[in-house]
Design a protein around this nucleic acid. Sequence first.
DNA 1: GTCTATACTCGGATAGAC
DNA 2: GTCTATCCGAGTATAGAC
Lengths: 199, 199
Amino acid sequence: MARTVDPELHARRRTALIGAAAVLFAERGYDATPVAAIAQTAGVSSGTVFHYFGDKRGLFRAVFESDLPETRAMIARHRDAPDPLTAILDLVGELVTPALDPGAAGLVVEVVRQVGHDPLLADVLAEDERIVEDGLRHLLERARGSIDPELDPVSTATWVRAVVDSAYLYADNPRATAPVETVRTIVLRYLTGHRKESS
Amino acid sequence: MARTVDPELHARRRTALIGAAAVLFAERGYDATPVAAIAQTAGVSSGTVFHYFGDKRGLFRAVFESDLPETRAMIARHRDAPDPLTAILDLVGELVTPALDPGAAGLVVEVVRQVGHDPLLADVLAEDERIVEDGLRHLLERARGSIDPELDPVSTATWVRAVVDSAYLYADNPRATAPVETVRTIVLRYLTGHRKESS
DNA sequence: GTCTATACTCGGATAGAC
DNA sequence: GTCTATCCGAGTATAGAC
């Protein structure tokens, strides 16, 4: 045995690296970002990166693994809210908010690029999707009374997620104004707009 | 002057190549598809591909350039329809329909991957977006009376397009059932659902 | 550093147009 | 019959995998 590292320092370095990786991968793209640049931004040596994450791919994956706990917490927070429809809208708002980050669009592109090359990354993303979709489905079932009864909770949960994702796709489109408010409105009207149905 | 080729044969070869390229790029991805495989599928030699499209990138681009005229025609067809709201919904339906194609999801991924590497491809896609968004904006302005008056035509046209694109993003998701009908419903309710607004 | 796979080139062959 | 745009496909240079 040798030196045991301060676990708090360890965690701080991890988050620093993940943060730097998210920014640089988003700005310059995965291939064009040397691991050394990320290490330097985070203030550690490039060897440390490999020690923490195994390889460059693992670092990229960690960016998304790191929000799994947050996603879980977010879903848990809304799961048992008194008004399920309001909970769905608040959840949707929270899900869209990170799309306001300037790097969001860049990261989306890199995810699409990399997911085909890294099955483990695909697993991480699938897990994230599962968590969100389960939470939405549960809330949709609870909201049965206040939303369109024709909407099947399973496919509707997927479509709500689809609309949320479109905000990420359009994150750098200047005409896609007020994403949080707009996506909330679209989802609210989709779920409740079963009155005035023509055509 | 010398040998002028039968223009019909020329066009047939072009479409055959574009069709084969669309299928193979969607199935195997851009990098993993040799030009020779596309040439063989289309029944021409690999040299002909370069003769027609310049380089591999140009062939990929041609897949999307080739539906610019169709997009223009589609927009023109709906532009002066008597009922603008119905026209918007029909247009949305037509825009989503190609997402039913088995290759749609694969092609979307490849577009996202390639667009950063090919400014000319970006131009083609931007032109397609411009055509669709102009058409939608025009119809939204005409529909002023029958839709939510708070909706700004410019940003709403973009958001409608965003919802349409989400159907492509989710084209291979088995839970995203009935994309044409669902996207039509989402858009209809978004545009007209200004009654029951709570939260 | 080696080696495979493949994007692209190029000289020659072909098949109309005149 | 000649001339040349078009097409073919083997060859080459090279980028990426291991």
